[in-house]
């Protein structure tokens, strides 16, 4: 970060952006720029990285496409637009998750691509996107024998392992699209609370379930204390499938043990209690 004026590059296509990034190893992509803006300091000028590749002219990155099974969102689409377009068909819990991210003027500045790519701070949407099996399309330039070619390649990476997978990609790799599967879940919940007060990071719980005739066909639960990562227990989720609702005392005991296991390494004790409260709340809600 510096106070000097940055070099602003404005590519017109993804390929042009990739080529620019390959040429300029220090350049950073600028979608909504929120990650940099939050650290831009005070005063008349913003402290920004030296070279910016601004993606606002690339139309492809702002497109939203809905098919029968998926919602394909261009990485430059801001969260407010996703909420607006997706009214009525976004998976349950998604609207709440978007609304809880920030107030509307800030949501208008946060791009979904930037939200996912941010490494320093966990994006509040990530646990839910992970539950929903969302995938990220990343484009990059292919290499042959250590040489960067101008032939673009792409990969679709599940959100769950995105940051690990992304570290193996070339530095010019760019998130171009996020695909969210639709119409799988008929119940869902997103909770963001601050059990340790506003000075501490929030606790986030996401749940998604498919319930048919009071039987839990499929369920997924994700927790995060926004510090140590996103936690899921796939074994628990698999074992809960097929259980009748409301859950029996034995099921509840199993759930309670699983939650204790998941939260065992969490730093703040209040988040552990919040996790159990949230799970209880989720299961009492899906009965209704």
């Amino acid at each position: 970060m510096q106070s000097r004026p940055p070099r602003v590059l404005m590519p017109n296509s993804v390929h042009e952006a990739l080529s620019m990034a390959a040429r300029e190893p220090d350049a950073v992509y600028w979608a909504g720029g929120m990650a940099f803006k939050q650290q831009s300091g005070h005063g008349a000028v913003m402290k920004l990285p030296g070279t910016l590749i601004v993606l606002s002219r690339i139309e492809e990155l702002a497109r939203v496409l809905r098919t029968e099974r998926t919602l394909d969102i261009g990485s430059m689409t801001n969260l407010e637009r996703i909420a607006e377009i997706g009214r009525g068909f976004l998976p349950p819990g998604m609207q709440e998750a978007i609304a809880s991210t920030a107030v509307r003027p800030v949501r208008c500045m946060i791009s979904i691509g930037g939200h996912i790519a941010e490494k320093k701070k966990l994006g509040y949407l990530l646990p839910l996107l992970q539950l929903l099996d969302a995938k990220v399309e990343v484009r990059f330039l292919r290499t042959r024998r250590g040489r960067v070619l101008s032939i673009p390649g792409n990969r679709k990476i599940p959100i769950a392992g995105f940051h690990d997978a992304a570290s193996g990609l070339p530095h010019e790799a760019l998130i171009t699209r996020v695909s969210i599967p639709l119409h799988i879940w008929n119940a869902g919940q997103f909770i963001k609370v601050y059990p340790g007060g506003r000075d501490n990071p929030p606790f986030i719980f996401c749940g998604a379930a498919r319930v048919e005739k009071k039987v839990l066909m499929e369920v997924r639960l994700a927790f995060t204390d926004a510090q140590t990562g996103i936690f899921r227990d796939t074994e628990l989720e698999a074992s809960m499938a097929g259980r009748g609702l409301p859950l029996s005392n034995k099921d509840l005991q199993q759930l309670s043990n699983a939650v204790s296991r998941i939260t065992a390494n969490w730093i703040q004790p209040f988040n552990k209690a919040a996790a159990w409260d949230a799970v209880c709340g989720f299961f009492s809600r899906i009965i209704l």
Partner: peptide, 13 residues
């Protein structure tokens, strides 16, 4: 009042 204070008094625990 801190949220933690209310939690400690919460009957959930």
């Amino acid at each position: 009042v801190q949220p933690e204070q209310m939690r400690m008094g919460s009957p959930c625990l």
